[in-house]
Computed example of a mutant assay.
Amino acid sequence: MPQNQQIVLDNRPQGEATVSNFKLVQSETPALQDGQVLVQHHYLSLDPYMRGRMNDGKSYAQPQPLGQVMIGGTVGEVVESRHPRYAVGDKVVGMGGWQQYSVVDANTPGTLRKVDTTHVPLSHYLGAVGMPGVTAWYGLVKIINPQAGETVVVSAATGAVGSAYAAVAKARGCRVVGIAGGPDKCAYAVNELGFDVCLDYKVHTDVKSLSQALKEACPDGIDGYFENVGGYILDAVLLRTNAFARIAVCGMIAGYDGKPMPLSNPALILINRLKVQGFIVGEHMEVWPEALAELGGLVASGKLRPRESVAQGLAAAPEAFLGLLKGKNFGKQLVKLI
């Protein structure tokens, strides 16, 4: 069995996360038991939710245990199998974690899924046709539920979630406005992802400026908003919401370091009779087949052209992850492991 490199959570962040919170270790890969398969990971997904799990506080999921392999989605190839449904060479997606190999009990439902790479590249199953894509789909379709002609907005617009959101929203006849950081990202959002407008938060650095920009970008107001960030961006969006607007709350990356994020005008929730709903996509597995079918079709047809930032080698994962939290990635952040 191969030697396995792994990254574990060595200690919990005190405020901002740092490289010193992680530790690279080597381990022996155990021999397979009946029903298990050995997966060699090709790509590791880095996602903002991982930062929240590094804290030892109350949340929707248990904290990442100290001294154990960091949680994370992976795609790869079966290299040894003692399970009848999986053969050597099968391409699979799972939650293999920050490591080169994983031993998976394939009898446990939901741990491993075979994927077809004929029309969709393997790496996309960690982004547009994976958890981030389904996240965008669920927030838009099931919570915002837009009608043709409505205006919908998303923060972190050029990431894996935002890019899928744009494609799904345009397919439903919406005006789609993004918020992203920097002129290159905003140009990509409009020219390749199909956004009608993309606003640069690095130009609009406070509530007043961003709210005015949103007023110009959304002349008919905002009917739906997908929240990834929080902070002053949420305050600015709330000022432009229409009556009965819907807000799907997926993430609050501005608060992952433990800083409080008070709303400046929560009365707008009542004044505009807003629906504000947080959600965790892993709690809605019943919609995944429908969502993945639509997302796969959008990728195969070229209507969704996701971009990827790829770090090379497992040792690069901590720096790439910290960069993701600061918006340094362009599109879906991955680590290539082979």
Rank of each mutant, 00 (worst) to 15 (best):
Q3M: 14
L9V: 09
G15Q: 02
V19D: 06
S20D: 13
N21M: 06
T29C: 03
L32D: 08
Q33K: 08
G35A: 04
Q40E: 15
H42A: 13
Y43D: 08
D47W: 02
R51G: 00
R51S: 04
R53W: 07
M54L: 11
S59T: 11
Q62Y: 10
G67C: 04
V79C: 08
S81Y: 07
P84C: 11
P84A: 10
P84I: 09
Y86I: 11
D90L: 06
M95D: 11
M95P: 07
D105V: 14
D116V: 13
T118Y: 13
S123I: 09
G127M: 03
M131R: 12
A136D: 03
W137M: 04
I144F: 02
V153L: 13
V154W: 06
A157E: 05
G159E: 01
G173K: 00
C174L: 04
V176K: 01
A180E: 05
P183R: 12
Y188F: 15
V197E: 08
D200C: 10
D200I: 09
V203L: 15
V203P: 11
V207S: 08
K208W: 15
S209P: 14
L210V: 14
A217I: 07
P219N: 13
G224V: 04
A243T: 15
F244A: 11
A248Y: 07
A254D: 07
D257K: 08
D257L: 03
G258P: 06
K259V: 13
P260I: 13
P260T: 13
L263H: 11
A267V: 12
L268S: 11
L268R: 12
I269E: 12
L270F: 14
K275E: 15
K275S: 15
G278R: 14
M285T: 15
W288S: 03
E290C: 04
A291L: 01
L295Y: 00
L295P: 00
L295T: 01
G297E: 05
V299R: 00
K303Q: 06
R305I: 10
R307W: 09
E308P: 00
S309F: 03
V310P: 01
Q312A: 12
Q312T: 09
G313Y: 08
L314W: 03
P318G: 05
A320C: 02
A320R: 01
F321E: 01
L322G: 08
K328Q: 10
L334C: 07
K336G: 10
I338T: 15
I338S: 14
